[in-house]
């Protein structure tokens, strides 16, 4: 019997296991790939330590400098909105917290559902805006690859199916929920092998950047 409940149970059971295992293997492999390459020893006399500057850049690069904001306000504002909306929906929605609690035994306070709902709607709109921007801005259009559109689609599907499931716009509900979980699983599987790794490696990159500038006496 192949019904929506079976589909939901498959996404919550074996498919979830597969996705998480691929995610864990892929991510650790990617991190090993990066760190084991190492860096050449630097003999130049440093002006300051690498660690404080590196750690600071890991945080400060989250906020654009004023000039960049003025030159690329769309990138900065819409980028911020959708990242925050996505993170809020991911981390502060009750069912997602219950997932973490069920899996790892840790939990934290949630946002009220209507707030998450609102943020999700904003995120969806922002994601559409980023796609339009990518298709229209000469630089973004020039540097975009198939991967960029693939990743956009997967991220959008995760948010969209979540929104549809929450509002029960797809029937029956197990199908809607299963589609949402499956989308998230596709995202997890793709994450270690695409630019999605930036959720982790961006902080590594920022550290290296901050460290390189920091040892020369500049807080990057």
């Amino acid at each position: 019997m192949s019904g929506s409940m079976e589909f939901l149970l498959w996404t919550k059971g074996p498919m979830f296991d597969i996705a998480m295992v691929i995610f864990a293997i892929g991510l650790l492999a990617r991190l090993a790939e990066i760190f084991l390459l190492g860096r050449a020893r630097n003999y130049a006399e440093p002006r300051a330590g690498e660690w404080p500057a590196g750690l600071r850049t890991m945080l400060t690069r989250t906020v654009a400098d004023r000039g960049t904001f003025e030159r690329a306000p769309f990138n900065v504002v819409v980028g911020w909105i959708w990242h925050l909306g996505f993170l809020a929906a991911l981390l502060l929605f009750v069912p997602h917290i219950e997932l973490a609690k069920g899996l790892f035994g840790i939990s934290w306070p949630a946002l009220p559902n209507p707030v998450v709902d609102f943020l999700t709607a904003i995120t969806l709109l922002s994601l559409v805006a980023t796609l339009v921007h990518r298709l229209n801005h000469p630089v973004k259009r020039r540097i975009s690859t198939i991967e960029d559109y693939l990743v956009w689609t997967v991220v959008f599907m995760v948010v969209l199916t979540g929104y549809l499931a929450y509002h029960r716009m797809v029937n029956p509900y197990p199908l809607a929920l299963g589609m949402h979980i499956l989308s998230a699983e596709i995202l997890l599987i793709l994450l270690p092998f695409t630019k999605l790794t930036h959720i982790l490696t961006a902080f590594i990159a920022r550290w290296y950047n901050g460290a390189a500038f920091g040892r020369k006496g500049v807080q990057s």
Binding site: E33, G38, R39, T68, A72, N75, K140, K195, T197, A205
Partner: peptide, 18 residues
Amino acid sequence: EIDAPTAAFFSSCVHCGI
């Protein structure tokens, strides 16, 4: 020339164009 920072940098690029 490929080293850990280079790998971290290329892994992270999201093609934002900034």
